[in-house]
Structures are given as structure tokens and as C-alpha cells.
């Protein structure tokens, strides 16, 4: 049975007072050796000051071009649709993502966090996974962002590196020979909540994406499970129609698509189209 921190504190204080109290002959007893106090917990650190904030209904902007940024269509029993996120391992076998609602994550209550756990992953090694979705193109510029974090296989927060062992995110246009734009960390935006560190990856794409593209998150070989929250790609003309947002320009590096990205996108298209009415 787990004692509450307050109860443990009282217990430890009691232990100290007994240890330092007078015995019946008036002599002070020696305090117990430190090992005897090994089970006593230090009083909990005071939590940082809370403030009241206004919660959002949605996990991202209403003009997000990603249809399912809250991963509502992901997981067993859900029906994938246009713009659903799909995941593939390095043999391009489709995986089922799991999701949880973590209100301390950047998605808040408005959407779920996607968990990417490769088959056979340990805390030190994992096979790469690619998670992707398509989005509608049009006039730019575009602002892309996503929050990422990492856990041990058991789910405890763990350190995340941005790179081949950890996570990367990119926007690819829809042509095989076209460009990919990597999202880069915004160090100043890093959030720590509930012992978990969330890293913001961001990119600003100054050109239009006339034929649309794919939002791709790569998880790496460093082990553990990887968390994705609040993916977003918005076009500035659409944002201008809402309350203006403050966007921090970030570096954008373009590169060619990898073979893995090409193949995953080909696999992504194998969704059976349904011609059935709405219910």
C-alpha cells in the first residue's frame, strides 16, 4: 500500500522525534543511523504556481490541413479515412498506432497522443517506424509543427534526441522526385510537464505546395516508445482569416525524399475506398 506523501512526511517526522527524544533516564538517545531512515521520503517539492488558462476545444488550429490531428481515427476499431495517420515499419508492414489522452501534453484534452512502439523494441534499441498522413496543398507559405517526446517501453518519460536514433519530422511534397522539408527543434519552446519533456519541431515553408504533400514523422533506432502530439500544417492565407497567430520563423532544410519515404507513401494508398452514404 502506497502511503501519501503527507502521511510519509508525518511518519518521518515522528521517527525523528522519537529518535531524538529523551529516554526514561533523561539521556538523549543517539539519532538512528542514516540507513534507518532510508525508507523515509523527503517532503514533496512544492509544485510550481498554477494559473488558470482557457482550454481549447481542438488540439490544433481549426484551419489545420491535417484532417485528424487528434488521432481520433487511429487505433483498433476506428475507421481510417482521408487524412488518417498510418504507420509502417522498415519492412513497410502497416502497424496499429495506440493513443492515449494526456491533458498535460501539448494536445491537452482536445486530442490524443499517438504512441509509436516498434515490435520487439527495448529501451535501447528499436526498428524505425514511419508515421504519415497526406494533406491538401495550395498557396503558401505554410507553417508546420509537431510536438514529440519519448518514453521507455514501460511508459516512463525518457530523454529524446532529434535525429536518426530519436525522432525526426518532415513535410514532403507529393512527387517522387520532389523535396522534403525537415522540421527543426525550437529549443525555447520545450515544455516539461508531469516529468515529461515535450520538444517542439517546427518549419516554415515559404513556397506553395500546389499538389499537397505528406506529413511524416520518423522514429529511430534508439529504443523506447515515441510520442507524437498536435501535428499541424496551416497555410498563412487561412490563418489570416482567423485570429492572427505569432509564428516563429525556423530554419527549413530541403532535401530529396528517401527510398523509405517513397515506399511508405505508396503503401499508404492501399486504403479501400467506400462509396456508402453517411449515417
Amino acid at each position: 500500500m502506497k502511503l501519501s506523501l503527507v502521511a510519509v512526511s508525518i511518519a518521518s517526522l515522528s521517527a525523528l522525534s522519537v529518535a531524538c527524544g529523551n529516554d526514561d533516564d533523561g539521556k538523549l538517545r543517539r539519532p538512528p543511523a542514516p540507513a534507518d531512515l532510508a525508507t523515509a521520503q523527503p517532503p514533496p517539492a512544492a509544485p510550481p504556481p498554477r494559473t488558470m488558462v482557457t482550454g481549447n476545444a481542438l488540439p490544433t488550429s481549426p484551419v489545420n490541413l491535417i484532417a485528424d490531428p487528434g488521432f481520433g481515427l487511429v487505433g483498433a476499431g476506428q475507421q481510417a479515412g482521408f487524412g488518417s495517420f498510418l504507420a509502417f515499419d522498415d519492412s513497410f508492414t502497416q502497424l496499429t498506432l495506440t493513443t492515449t489522452v494526456e491533458s498535460r501534453s501539448p494536445a491537452g484534452f482536445g486530442g490524443a497522443v499517438a504512441h509509436v512502439l516498434a515490435d520487439g523494441a527495448t529501451d535501447r534499441a528499436s526498428t524505425p517506424i514511419m508515421v504519415l498522413t497526406s494533406f491538401q496543398g495550395g498557396a503558401g507559405p505554410f507553417h508546420a509543427k509537431v510536438w514529440v517526446s519519448r518514453s521507455t517501453v514501460a511508459g516512463a518519460p525518457a530523454t529524446l534526441t532529434i535525429g536518426a536514433k530519436g525522432m525526426r519530422a518532415s513535410i514532403t511534397d507529393e512527387t517522387p522526385d520532389g523535396e522534403a522539408f525537415d522540421l527543426t527543434p525550437v529549443e525555447s519552446a520545450t515544455r516539461v510537464s508531469g516529468g515529461r519533456t515535450w520538444t517542439l519541431l517546427r518549419a516554415e515553408i515559404t513556397k506553395g505546395l500546389g499538389y499537397g504533400g505528406f506529413f511524416v514523422v520518423h522514429t529511430g533506432t534508439g529504443g523506447g516508445q515515441f510520442l507524437i502530439a498536435a501535428p499541424e500544417i496551416v497555410a498563412q492565407p487561412l490563418v489570416d482569416g482567423l485570429v492572427s497567430t505569432h509564428s516563429t520563423p525556423a530554419f527549413v532544410r530541403t532535401r530529396s525524399k528517401t527510398d523509405a519515404e517513397r515506399t511508405a507513401i505508396l503503401r499508404y494508398r492501399s486504403q479501400r475506398q467506400q462509396l456508402v452514404p453517411a449515417r
Binding site: 509544485p47 510550481p48 498554477r50 494559473t51 488558470m52 488558462v53 482557457t54 482550454g55 476545444a57 494526456e102 491533458s103 498535460r104 491537452g108 484534452f109 510537464s193 508531469g194
Partner: peptide
Amino acid sequence: VRTGRETSDGWA
């Protein structure tokens, strides 16, 4: 439903 009143540390 959520009222929109939330705390900075994830309570709604």
C-alpha cells in the same frame, strides 16, 4: 463537457 476553464498543469 469541458467548460474551457483549465489550469496550466493539465486540469480541466
